[in-house]
Design a protein around this nucleic acid. Structure first.
Lengths: 220, 220
DNA sequence: CTCCAGTTTTTAGTATACAATTCTCTTGTA
DNA sequence: TACAAGAGAATTGTATACTAAAAACTGGAG
């Protein structure tokens, strides 16, 4: 069952938005996109409707569709919710994790550390996403896993905010270690506590946040 | 800025699904809907795309679009996440609530109690939704408020599951009272604890749940 | 009666045409 | 120069026409 063109276009646009190619406020011109993808406006419009529904774009009646990145305050709010979901996932996961699960996490974690050491940020993001995704799955609550994955993806372009703070990367790896050890011990409390700290961006100095944010947003 | 026909159709379909008129598995026929709403297939299709994106329907390529209600296990998972979000909202709200906020909640709560006394379930749902919505807003995290509202709405048709259990309605009101008192005292811990119990459906006896569920689903 | 092949019918997906609204650029006036 | 009005262009929203794939039906063989 291969995907329909309209679905492919939707996914392609999502990726282009998340990866930063299509930045905040960018107008998604139907005619332009239809020639870009080599189709008519109809499937493009359907893709845009779906993007708007998922929150990645905003549709203004008779005006057009625009890429909609969260504002700084929304971003902080989203990270706050993300922390809560991660926390919930790790709490549930701590009660269900088999040693095979934990071994898989350890393997991801090592790959993560290797990527940090090699300075390969792309690889780091990829492996880190896999690690967190595995934890969501381990929660046993697939609805939670889906929601967490969705939010994680939407926050992806902003995750580097955390990593620009000096030393955050090492700190992050240390937290992973603590979380894995807590999982191994079945210590849900400690895992949750560390995870909350791991995700929360609120503690980051406001200036760091704003300046990084402006860089991404192109100082609008 | 009046809504576009396609947006109206989307909202109308959402309502008809949530209210149970369009039950699980129901095929959403494009031609039928277009004549029903007096428009062509194009805006109907756009509405269906959005419904599918939001999870209320499922789109199978070249097969059609079908109303998709959650399975029993998904439902339990959703209530579990809902409990967590409500919990988070009440925790944040406890720290920010002004006495005016609490007064408004008390008023809603009284309206809620009156609806229960009068046996007016429709009114009860309405006021209860307003009360919970107010708490989401009070959290100060508008992203959380949005997500919570969304999930609350999606769970609306299944909320009665909780209320079919004998005595659940009175219990529910008592919990509201405790939560409000805890808010007044600024006791976030007690508010959270009660809220979690208030929402969680997991504790409900499995048989009650399944039988109620089957009634709603038409025993498929 | 059941099963299968081939045909017909229906329906989803897309392209195109048209209508309606907004944007833009020009032009004229204060 | 600043600004408002209006014509024209561009763009969105919708209808319709066409294509292709899946479902339904028909008729015959076993």
């Amino acid at each position: 069952m291969d995907k329909l063109p309209s679905a492919k276009i939707r996914d392609s646009l999502e990726q282009r938005i998340v990866e930063g190619e299509l930045g905040h406020g960018k107008r998604l011109d139907e005619t332009e996109l239809s020639s870009f993808y080599g189709v008519s406006r109809t499937p493009v419009r359907e893709a845009l409707q779906r993007l708007a529904e998922s929150g990645l774009a905003e549709h203004l009646p008779r005006r057009g569709t625009f890429v909609r990145s969260p504002s700084l305050s929304q971003l902080v709010e989203m990270f706050e919710v993300m922390a809560e979901l991660e926390c919930m996932a790790i709490r549930l996961a701590a009660r269900r994790a088999t040693s095979a699960d934990i071994d898989a996490l350890v393997k991801d974690n090592e790959a993560c550390r290797a990527a940090v050491a090699a300075g390969d940020t792309k690889k780091y993001y990829e492996v880190n996403a896999r690690l967190h995704g595995r934890i969501y799955q381990m929660s046993g609550n697939s609805f939670l896993a889906n929601e967490a994955r969705r939010l994680h993806d939407r926050l992806r372009p902003f995750r580097r905010l955390q990593l620009r703070v000096r030393g955050r990367m090492d700190e992050s790896m240390a937290e992973h270690d603590i979380i894995l050890q807590a999982l191994r011990d079945g210590d849900a409390e400690r895992a949750m506590e560390t995870m909350k700290k791991h995700i929360t961006i609120v503690g980051v100095r406001f200036n760091d946040l704003v300046s990084s944010f402006n860089t991404i947003m192109g100082d609008e």
